[in-house]
Amino acid sequence: MIDTLTLNQLRTFIAIAEAGGFRAGAARLRRAQSAVSHAVASLEAELDITLFDRSGRRPVLTPAGIALLEDARAILLKVDTMRARAQGVGMGLELELPVVVDTLFPLPLVGQALLAVHQRYPSVRAQVQVAPLGGPLVALLDGRCSLSVTVGDELNDPRLTKEPLGTVAVVPVVAASHALADRVRPGARMRVEDITEHLQIVLSDPTPMSTGRDFNVLSPQTFRVGTQEAKLALIEAGLGWGRLPLWTVKQALDDGRLVKLPSRSLGPAGESRQQAYVVHRRDRVRGPAATALRDELLARHAAVRGA
């Protein structure tokens, strides 16, 4: 009967499907392979269906298995959310507050929010890391942080809740010594073809979340870098052009070391705005310090919009 299904069976089913095999699923769950095989066999017997085709070298989800996998994930997500809420009742103050922030997001705003949290909870030690693209989301999913800030709408996960903070201005820039800078004229608009024939400096995603996809990559020739600081350094050296958050390059633009590329294809007046979010896991309850940081960040959404 359906009533005899267990959460252990569902977790085992999901682990095998995601890991790609019984042995890998057992390793993920830190259980014996025989126990994992028994759990799935029991689940199949109770549902009276076959979840995995075991005829090949590796088990493959059957059509029934594919159909039920999302149901199993949804059930466990609700159960884990309920458990997290129960555990959060009477939760004490955290000892540490690990946070991962998108490289595009203005760090001064994070600093202001953390200052307010520190004044309220001086015993909590904050750990702040900066990561591009999928980094903040994967850190949350892996349990390496209790809160993250991300920018952009391209990457999502149903286990995460995203609350909008505001927008971040991103501009295409090039060094004043670069050949492209000579084509920039007051009031003139550049064609996208004029820009894409030059090398573009692109930030790489250290996670698999964007595998097979590129975001805002226009030039056929690219140099890939791992940090925003490296990207800025290569652009300032005159190697190529690239998009950077306005808050990081405003001084260089004012000083004349960098030049903004005025192409409508890169946004009005060569500027685009990307939505920023504060993110947390649905199945985890934030502690008092994490909640305070989330509230402080949301309270500053107007400032982010004007950044």
Rank of each mutant, 00 (worst) to 15 (best):
5 L>R: 07
15 A>N: 02
17 A>E: 05
18 E>L: 02
23 R>N: 12
24 A>V: 04
25 G>K: 09
28 R>S: 10
28 R>P: 01
30 R>F: 00
31 R>H: 13
35 A>K: 12
35 A>N: 13
38 H>C: 06
40 V>G: 06
44 E>C: 11
44 E>L: 10
45 A>R: 14
57 R>C: 03
65 G>H: 03
66 I>C: 03
66 I>S: 04
67 A>V: 01
71 D>F: 08
77 L>T: 06
85 R>Q: 13
85 R>M: 11
86 A>N: 13
93 L>S: 04
95 L>M: 12
97 L>N: 06
101 V>L: 10
102 D>W: 11
103 T>I: 10
108 P>S: 04
111 G>V: 04
113 A>V: 09
116 A>L: 09
122 P>E: 07
123 S>M: 10
124 V>M: 07
127 Q>G: 02
129 Q>Y: 13
132 P>L: 01
135 G>N: 03
141 L>C: 08
142 D>Y: 08
142 D>F: 05
145 C>N: 03
147 L>A: 05
147 L>C: 04
148 S>L: 02
149 V>A: 05
150 T>F: 08
150 T>E: 10
151 V>P: 12
156 N>H: 15
160 L>K: 09
160 L>P: 09
164 P>W: 13
174 V>Y: 00
176 A>D: 02
185 R>S: 09
187 G>D: 06
190 M>F: 02
192 V>K: 13
196 T>G: 04
196 T>E: 14
196 T>Q: 14
197 E>A: 14
200 Q>P: 07
201 I>G: 11
205 D>E: 08
207 T>N: 05
211 T>H: 11
214 D>W: 06
218 L>V: 09
221 Q>G: 10
229 E>Q: 15
230 A>S: 14
234 L>P: 03
239 L>Y: 12
243 R>T: 12
245 P>G: 12
246 L>T: 01
252 A>G: 05
253 L>H: 02
254 D>F: 05
258 L>R: 07
258 L>W: 11
259 V>S: 00
263 S>A: 15
268 P>K: 09
270 G>V: 01
272 S>L: 15
273 R>Q: 14
279 V>M: 03
279 V>T: 11
281 R>P: 04
283 D>R: 07
287 G>Y: 14
287 G>P: 02
293 L>V: 04
295 D>R: 12
296 E>L: 07
302 A>L: 15
305 R>S: 15
